[in-house]
């Protein structure tokens, strides 16, 4: 017994430098914020932009989290995720427009109730659609990346067309509820109310997801499955069921994000899902496929970058995110915090 303990090294704690390096991905967000401050050189503008960037980042995170887990768990790249975003937005808009009395009222409670109902309807619709999508579109092509990309892209096209069929060919204006319009001015800092709500919802989702992944057995299984699905099966769990669950949850989150994004832009189109999907992809790649924390970091980076460059050089806003992605991939070819395999 004694010589057995002798061969085990002391608490495996790598040297300080190594630990700092491992923490480096987490520092990218504050570093980018500082760089933004240096470039903008005006504290109140910077604060406004940073808040806007965080809000945008949170919204993107909501939509990207499901995609990254679906990929991590089953190696499935789902282009149809964009369809869930659009459909969520349209379902949510229908509910909000039907509850015109509530949204036009200046009561914050009624406004929030309307938004909550819209979100619930959107999540239910996209969750259900996600289940259908997984069973019918994705399941037959497990393990074949090329076919997955083609088939889910096809699903996206069909879903976009179905939106046109149901809601008509035109974009729909989606005004924010009364109490969420406008902004507070604190000193010289402009704080848009809706952005604050977006940050709150995004943070809640992130904390909720983290809690579920760390504290619940289901979460443990998902994290274990992302790392080594085969071993999870060998321990007696059906990873397939786990995957359907994550797929449905991810689709519902995309629907939630769609509603929130629609209210952010105050206009929704059938193509919005595909356009946002591009941002979502950038985020997921930056974060490292399969990692929820990486996805969160990536989303904040992209949100901040988009707002800083949108202010400094509006013409290259999206291009700047591509550059960000390229830079991060040059530094870490698998993204900031890739989910460990094996």
């Amino acid at each position: 017994m004694t010589d057995r303990t002798a061969e085990t090294p002391a608490v495996p704690s790598p040297p300080l430098k190594e630990r700092l390096l491992a923490r480096l991905p987490y520092w990218t967000v504050p570093l980018l914020a500082l760089a933004g401050l240096a470039a903008i050189a005006d504290l109140s503008t910077w604060t406004t932009l940073t808040l806007a960037g965080l809000a945008m980042g949170m919204l993107i995170f909501i939509m990207a989290s499901g995609l990254t887990l679906v990929f991590g768990l089953m190696d499935v790249l789902n282009f149809g995720h964009g369809a869930f975003i659009s459909i969520g937005a349209f379902v949510g808009a229908s509910v909000l427009l039907a509850l015109g009395g509530w949204t036009a009222s200046s009561s914050l409670a009624l406004n929030l109730a309307a938004v909550c109902l819209a979100i619930a309807a959107a999540m239910a619709a996209t969750g259900l659609l996600g289940w259908f999508f997984e069973r019918v579109i994705v399941k037959p092509v497990y393990g074949a990346h090329l076919k997955q990309i083609l088939v889910t892209m096809g699903g996206l096209i069909v879903a976009e067309q179905l939106i046109h069929l149901i809601w008509g060919p035109n974009q729909i204006p989606l005004p924010r509820p009364e109490a969420l319009k406008g902004s507070w001015v604190i000193g010289e800092v402009v704080v848009e109310r809706y952005r604050l709500l977006a940050v709150a919802v995004g943070a809640a989702i992130f904390l909720g997801l983290r809690w579920a992944l760390v504290r619940t057995k289901l979460g443990l299984l998902i994290r274990a499955g992302v790392e080594n699905g085969e071993m999870v099966e060998a321990l007696g769990y059906r990873i397939q069921r786990l995957f359907v669950l994550v797929f449905v949850a991810g689709s519902a989150l995309a629907g939630l994000g769609g509603v929130m994004w629609g209210l952010y832009d105050e206009i929704i189109t059938a193509q919005m899902g595909l356009n946002i999907l591009i941002l979502v992809f950038i985020v997921v790649i930056i974060g490292g496929l399969g990692s929820v924390e990486g996805c969160f970091l990536g989303a904040l980076l992209v949100g901040l970058m988009a707002n800083y460059t949108g202010f400094l050089a509006p013409k290259v806003a999206l291009g700047s995110n591509i550059l960000l992605m390229v830079a991060i991939l040059m530094w870490r070819p698998r993204g900031l915090l890739p989910a460990g395999k094996g």
């Binding site: 790392e227 060998a234 989910a339």
Partner: peptide, 12 residues
């Protein structure tokens, strides 16, 4: 089952 690569979940 104890696989050849041990199959330990490193992140857990």
């Amino acid at each position: 089952y104890v696989p050849e690569n041990m199959g330990v979940f490193a992140g857990l």
